[in-house]
Amino acid sequence: MTDTTEPGVHGRRLRVATAWLGGCSGCHMSFLDLDESLFDLADRADIVFGPLADIKVFPADVDLTLVEGSVTNSDNQELAAAIRANTTVVVSFGDCAVTGNITSLRNGLGDPSGMLERVYVEHPDLTGQLPTDVVPTLLPQALPLHDVIDVDVYLPGCPPSAARIKAALFALLDAIESGQDVQSVMATRAPDDIRFGN
């Protein structure tokens, strides 16, 4: 399926990943709203990881990763580290990744143990106990992605509209292919392409 006549890097097609950390997946929904532009993306790149691709381990040698959600638990922390270790351009994708957004509203409440107690014990389901093995441990605070790993590009919005995703995504792919500095490419964005909230 790889077409080597397509432009790419290192003599291969571009490898794009998406990741879903502490967020509502709304950013991914907005990503799906790219509609027919998804075909343009498929023409240029392979989707090598993410909720849209059933792959369990973050792969090596990824050109660009869109990371949705804040870093809110131990799993997010590990995945964020893996993303950074294996990705050239990490994009903080949507307000939760960029600022913490809704997920960070709990931060003002302090230590999460009281909150867990309230949800799992005081208002119990059938078990009435704190989850142990299966649910990853909550971090004391839900953190913006750049507090945990270095981030190359920020794409705010809750969610970023499909138009904004499209503008940023294809400009980034162009930049990666032509070897341009992604930050200077993004620095020329119009005010409409940078917006918190919706």
């Binding site: 509203l105 750049h146 981030v151 005010p191 909230g197 919706n198």
Partner: peptide, 26 residues
Amino acid sequence: HVCAACVASGACELQDLASENGVDHI
């Protein structure tokens, strides 16, 4: 300033200032 949960989102001067001045993260 969680715009997504704010009554003023869409009509907020701080939100506009971020866009107009290129503040894409904190």
